[in-house]
Design a binder for these strands. Sequence first.
DNA 1: AAGAGTTAGTTGAAGGCTCAAATATTGAGC
DNA 2: GCTCAATATTTGAGCCTTCAACTAACTCTT
Lengths: 160, 160
Amino acid sequence: MTDTAQFTDWLTHDQQQHWRCYLEGNARLWDALARDLESQTDLSLSEYEILVRLSERKNTAMRMSELADELAQSRSRITHTVRRLEERGLVIRSQTPGDGRGVNCTMTPTGRDVLQQAAPIHVASVRTRLVNVITDEELAVLGRMFARLARQDSDEDHHC
Amino acid sequence: MTDTAQFTDWLTHDQQQHWRCYLEGNARLWDALARDLESQTDLSLSEYEILVRLSERKNTAMRMSELADELAQSRSRITHTVRRLEERGLVIRSQTPGDGRGVNCTMTPTGRDVLQQAAPIHVASVRTRLVNVITDEELAVLGRMFARLARQDSDEDHHC
DNA sequence: AAGAGTTAGTTGAAGGCTCAAATATTGAGC
DNA sequence: GCTCAATATTTGAGCCTTCAACTAACTCTT
């Protein structure tokens, strides 16, 4: 836009092609996963993911900020989603012992039931939509690739 | 849940690991791309993508349903987004000649200006966040993988 | 050429996400 | 121990997306 603007380093034809395939495939994959889960359970993907993380902890409890960090979601979003889950009786919130600012989110027995019913459905969906469509080799490449991206981007978050 | 329920075919440890890396990396990637674009331009990612597709056509025009199909978005979503773009003067809508039901979406000169200003910013972002972080080899695997997923899922859409 | 079914697109309400601002608590430095 | 900055979380408004219902036009059949 200005005299000093540099020429843009556009993507090559092949890069662009691959990038677009990812764009479309990714969109369709998420659509499919969300539809699969929501049509057969009462959980959205983000609700499901919260319950899964809780289920992996001692006492099925985590702090709000831990949830936010692990799920790469904003604190605000976690607050809203957890509030809805709490209204439905799937989790309860309580103060953290040590830190007066902290809030602990604990899964209730009802929450566990709902999760246990949803889990097989979601896993089957992930298989059908992704894992069974690509090779284990490819899945491994995918995992390593995105682990690198995540590291890179979350590093940048804490740059200040 | 019932007596006849089959045992779930859970993911292996490695598969789960890779799947989670993808989950997190993907979330962070999209966050970063959206923030990069929205902080430096007046376009959201979905608005940007619509303008890009239009820019590639003769007369920078496409039908609404073509947009929906290419971008893997619902017709409703396209309608809403295009309405907002039209209100801002970046596109205009008109009837398609042959088909009385069809609506053509055409990019205006203003739209082209906005796109041309945004494009280098977005491309730089895609490079920084993805293309420069992985190898060309990996990008190719990514592209082929998701092309296969897209084919699979969009086939299923038309299953009836 | 009339009716049934399909396709294209829009609409508005409901709900989730984002953003910025607000509250409350903790920790650091003096 | 007081002040200032940082951390943890919440709040509510605004925007975007989804969903189901609606209009309109085309097409296929008979």
